[in-house]
């Protein structure tokens, strides 16, 4: 069985007495030592899916409306939050998009890492301090012995994101969920951070779920990819299969939106319009108002998921790519 196995996950947001669906029928699996990429525009439900896996939706307006999440064989949604914390505490970790807001500005970074360690392990403060130093070394912060006493504002954006990763790794997780870990950073730092995650993965054999809206980042780091649009997975395949035969018009739209680096294009193939808001209902295929390939059927019938090739699924009436 896969390390993480999500089946038909449905999430809804309670607003004004009604439940608006935000994530619908999402099924994903991640094997040991594998990297899954989730790509899509903001508001497509990527972060909510991640928070549902982590069990961090408690006390929010988001409800789990259906489906299952299995991790190492445990049915996570059947566990109480208490049991979940006890069993899963050390096994999963998450890093967030904003390294500035996820660190507490009034404590030294070393103390914050030590607290993260002590939450999951019983060891002396002295040992925890040593371990914090090791972790800072691991995430390649220069001069960790001095940096351990820095406050978050004294570090650059890239360094703060490394500290976040160090805290996430404090408990040797089997699964690391990284929600847009490099969106706030610039390219040179982004490369360092992605390389760091890959390197750690190679060393520890952990699995990674990497959320991003940059297809380039996904293609460089992930083994397989799920493309999300408006709460649904619209295309899912191994990275190589996806990039050799992109089939969903939305995936192609994301690709077309990215300016080329090695040749000149006059105009970008932007996707027109924007992601509909939660309270806007779209009949038929949710993407049809923005889709270049839409036909009459798309306006009335919601396409089901169909296989383009054995491990490549597309939710579209008229998939593009080599088959058409």
């Amino acid at each position: 069985m896969a390390l993480l196995d999500i089946r038909k996950l449905d999430l809804s947001i309670a607003r004004g007495g009604e439940l608006l669906p935000v994530v619908q029928g999402v099924s994903l699996s991640v094997e040991e030592n594998e990297t899954l990429g989730i790509v899509g525009e903001s508001g497509c439900g990527k972060s909510l899916t991640a928070l549902a896996i982590m069990g961090l939706l408690e006390g929010t307006a988001v409800r789990i409306a259906g489906g299952s999440v299995h991790f190492q064989g445990w049915d996570l949604l059947a566990l109480s939050p208490e049991e979940r914390r006890r069993i899963m505490g050390r096994q999963m970790a998450m890093i967030f998009q904003e390294p500035m807001t996820s660190l507490n500005p009034v404590y030294r970074v070393g103390d914050q890492i030590r607290e993260a360690i002590l939450q999951h392990r019983s060891m002396s403060r002295r040992q925890a301090h040593e371990r914090a130093l090791d972790l800072l070394e691991l995430v390649r912060i220069p001069d960790p012995a001095r940096r351990i006493d820095s406050f978050p504002h004294q570090m650059s954006g890239g360094q703060r994101q490394r500290v976040m990763i160090a805290m996430a790794l404090a408990c040797d997780p089997r699964l690391l969920i990284a929600d847009e870990p490099t969106t706030a950073l610039d390219v040179t730092v982004q490369k360092d951070v992605l390389e760091l995650i890959r390197g750690l993965q190679a060393r520890t054999g952990m699995s990674v779920v990497l959320i991003s809206h940059d297809l380039g980042v996904i293609s460089e780091t992930c083994d397989k990819v799920a493309v999300m649009y408006r709460g649904r997975i619209v295309e899912q395949a191994s990275t190589s299969a996806l990039f050799s035969n992109m089939s969903h018009p939305y995936t192609l739209g994301l690709l077309g939106s990215m300016p080329a680096l090695d040749h000149d294009v006059e105009w970008l193939d932007a996707i027109p319009g924007r992601v509909p808001t939660l309270d806007e209902t779209v009949l038929g295929c949710a993407f049809h108002p923005r889709c270049f390939a839409a036909k009459a059927t798309c306006r009335t019938e919601d396409p089901g998921a169909a296989a383009v090739s054995p491990a490549h699924f597309v939710r579209c009436h008229f998939p593009q790519g080599s088959s058409s």
Partner: peptide, 26 residues
């Protein structure tokens, strides 16, 4: 600048951009 960058920093900047089909690490 994009095809024949001269300065080392420009070269590093260009090399950092994620590109399709290139794999990081491992």
């Amino acid at each position: 600048i994009f095809e024949t960058p001269r300065h080392a920093y420009t070269q590093r900047l260009l090399a950092s951009i994620p590109r399709f089909g290139k794999r990081i690490g491992r």
